[in-house]
Amino acid sequence: MSNALMSDRMPDTVMLFAAGFGTRMGALTADRPKPLVPVNGRALIDHALDLVDSAGVPNTVVNLHYRGQMIRDHLVGREITFAEEPEILETGGGLKAALSLIGAGPVLTLNSDAIWQGPNPIEMLRAAWDPETMDALMVLIPPAQARGYQGQGDFHRADNGQLTRGARAIYGGVQILKTDGLALIDQTAFSLNLLWDQMLGAGRLYGITYPGTWCDVGNPAGLKLAEQMLEDTDV
């Protein structure tokens, strides 16, 4: 298969970010990694993997650092490839370091610290992905539909889905993106914002709007909001 065709195929791998220290969670992450913090009795990473399983994505790569063995033990029996990081590499550096495990072509990336109420965002991305015009496609959350989020917003979305920097929508932590541009970043630890900046400059960063509710589980207050959101769903 040519490099061009491999770059444009539908992604068949999810990169799940699970390496961070989770310091904003305080005492909750003193003895466990953030992805193992329970939300309504199930670990955060299990909620994230529910999305992967439901969407039928065949391959999953999980990056590890802080208390990584605990995550390995928790996921025993699942067909998962682990990418152990000797130091925190941030999202961009973590993805770049795992490219040998992911392979060529676009990849789905998923943060492990959010709870979703509504349609599966991975399925939404795969249905809307257009590699002819896009280098990345991300799920955006309108601020009115976000819980637990303390930032200022990330992007403005035009009617055609094209993105610019702004505060009208929040990046929900799940996307499809081509990884070619990582080779142009001469750093080891860096944010995916550097890759997005390349795509923004080329007019090839796109987003879709999530119609449901999303909760950022970044601190204990966000955890309580996520649990309430799930309890309301079960009623």
Rank of each mutant, 00 (worst) to 15 (best):
D135H: 02
R204V: 07
L195A: 04
T109F: 00
G26M: 02
R165I: 15
W116H: 03
G218R: 00
R72V: 15
V52C: 04
T164M: 15
A83Y: 03
G105W: 14
T13H: 01
L28Q: 01
M10Q: 14
G151L: 03
Y149G: 14
V52H: 01
D130H: 07
D159C: 11
L177R: 09
R168N: 13
D8I: 04
L99Q: 08
Q162S: 10
L110Q: 00
G222M: 09
G181H: 08
E227L: 01
D50M: 13
G68P: 12
F82G: 05
D180S: 07
I88L: 10
D113M: 00
A98Y: 10
R78G: 09
A4I: 02
S191K: 14
G207R: 01
G93M: 01
V61R: 01
N3I: 09
Q162R: 15
G203C: 11
E231A: 13
Q145S: 14
C215T: 15
G212W: 03
L16V: 11
I115E: 05
T179C: 06
L194W: 11
D46S: 08
A18I: 09
R147N: 05
P33T: 05
R157H: 06
T91E: 05
A104W: 08
A189T: 02
I71A: 06
L205I: 03
A226D: 06
P211D: 10
V57T: 13
Q152P: 13
D8N: 15
Q152K: 14
N120R: 06
L140G: 09
Q152D: 14
G20H: 13
P119Q: 13
E227P: 04
L99F: 09
L5A: 13
L99C: 06
A114I: 07
L225K: 14
E79S: 14
P11E: 01
M25S: 02
Y206Q: 00
A83T: 08
T13M: 03
T109R: 00
P143A: 07
A183E: 07
D186G: 02
A104T: 13
A43M: 03
A83V: 10
R147F: 12
Q187E: 09
N59K: 11
W129Y: 14
M134L: 06
D73W: 13
T188V: 15
A97L: 10
Q150V: 13
R157Q: 12
A97D: 11
R9M: 12
P58D: 06
T81D: 12
P35E: 05
V37E: 01
V174T: 11
L44W: 14
V107W: 02
N219H: 07
E84R: 08
Q69K: 04
L28E: 00
D12W: 01
V235W: 03
P86T: 15
H47V: 11
G222N: 08
A158P: 04
T91K: 09
A158E: 10
W129S: 01
T133M: 03
G207Y: 02
Q162Y: 07
P121Q: 04
N3S: 08
R78Q: 14
I122T: 10
N63Y: 05
A19S: 10
L192T: 05
R67Q: 15
D46G: 05
D12V: 03
T81L: 10
I208M: 02
C215P: 15
T91F: 10
G173P: 05
T29D: 08
D73M: 09
R157M: 15
I102F: 01
